[in-house]
């Protein structure tokens, strides 16, 4: 584990993400009023595990809709009791950076965006857009990479460990609500 960008040269500048530890997230999540969870299209992240299930559980626990990158929509469309929006991530980010955007429910923009399972270099740049042009949003990366352009990010870790951390996070979120 280390808080250096996953891609070694991806050093954006003086403002880099605070390291987010799993146990910190449930407390932070409680303070979020309108979070939005965003699933990227790093397909290999979903191999041989139930990641979709954990992601859906997390979104439900946060009362967040789930935006899924088009390459992975099929993995999520059969889940019940969750609003799944299949949308290009760049298109989504373009709306998120507009503080007057009405959101998916016409209730207004969100206050936090939580990213997971994105292609590293693409997600890094989408986070950069939000870092510069969406001061009204908090951004979190709970991917297995340290994303310096997020406001809070997990550190780098192995795929195996990351799945464990996500499972733990679901457990902690449940406990925190009860």
């Amino acid at each position: 584990m280390s808080a250096t960008p996953w891609q070694i040269a991806d050093i954006p500048g003086p403002k880099q993400a605070h390291v987010l530890r799993v146990e910190m997230f449930p407390k932070i999540a409680k303070t979020l009023k309108r979070p939005l969870m965003v699933v990227g299209s790093r397909k290999e992240a979903f191999e041989g595990n139930d990641l979709e299930k954990y992601i859906v559980e997390l979104a439900k626990l946060m009362n967040s809709p789930l935006v899924v990158s088009p390459g992975l929509c099929k993995n999520f469309i059969n889940f019940k009791d969750i609003k799944v929006i299949c949308m290009g991530i760049e298109d989504l980010i373009n709306r998120l950076k507009d503080k007057d955007w009405k959101g998916f429910d016409d209730e207004g923009n969100y206050d936090a965006v939580i990213f997971i399972a994105g292609i590293y270099y693409f997600q890094s740049l989408m986070l950069s857009t939000l870092k510069h042009f969406a001061p009204h949003l908090k951004t979190f990366s709970i991917d297995r990479f340290y994303h310096p352009n997020a406001e809070f990010s997990f550190e780098n870790m192995s795929e195996k460990r990351w799945i464990q951390e996500i499972k733990s996070l679901v457990g902690m979120m449940k406990s925190s609500l009860h």
Partner: peptide
């Protein structure tokens, strides 16, 4: 809809 757009996957590129 767009003039220059970055698609994340081939699926998205084709539909776009």
């Amino acid at each position: 809809e767009h003039l220059l757009y970055v698609a994340e996957t081939k699926e998205e590129a084709m539909v776009t």
